[in-house]
């Protein structure tokens, strides 16, 4: 039997996973997302990734980004290398794609802020 802590939500359920021939039996999960998490974690562990990407704008030297979908855990540092190789040159906003289909993983790196569209003190 394997024990895992579910990281889907702050509840942090303790999951017990046992294998019955081909199928995995998951207990300890408070919701069905926990069972899905355990399945994935045992076969193809994936994580989300949040970081920042450099920009050419001095008032906002970096723009926060994340992957649009979870990526294989083993690819995190490869994707970080791609993100750190990128420089944003246009005033893109929240949800805009920064790197399309990063490393062919089926997820985009997207901006998570409208920071570059704001002007300091705009609301005053």
């Amino acid at each position: 039997m394997t024990e895992l802590t579910c990281i889907v939500c702050p509840r942090s359920c303790k999951l017990q996973i046992s294998a019955d021939k081909e199928t995995l039996i998951v207990t300890g999960n408070a919701c069905k997302r926990g069972a899905v998490f355990a399945q994935n974690e045992m076969t193809d562990p994936r994580r989300t990734l949040c970081s920042t990407v450099a920009t050419v704008f001095p008032e906002a030297p970096v723009l926060p980004v994340r992957v649009s979908d979870e990526i294989p855990k083993a690819k995190i540092f490869d994707v970080m290398r791609e993100i750190n190789r990128t420089v944003v040159k246009t005033r893109i906003g929240r949800g805009d794609v920064v790197i399309k289909n990063v490393l062919g993983l089926g997820a985009d790196v997207i901006a998570t802020s409208d920071l570059l569209k704001e002007k300091a003190g705009e609301t005053s």
Partner: peptide, 10 residues
């Protein structure tokens, strides 16, 4: 939804 801090704030 699972949002980043800036997304939630914005």
């Amino acid at each position: 939804e699972k949002l980043s801090g800036p997304e939630y704030a914005e």
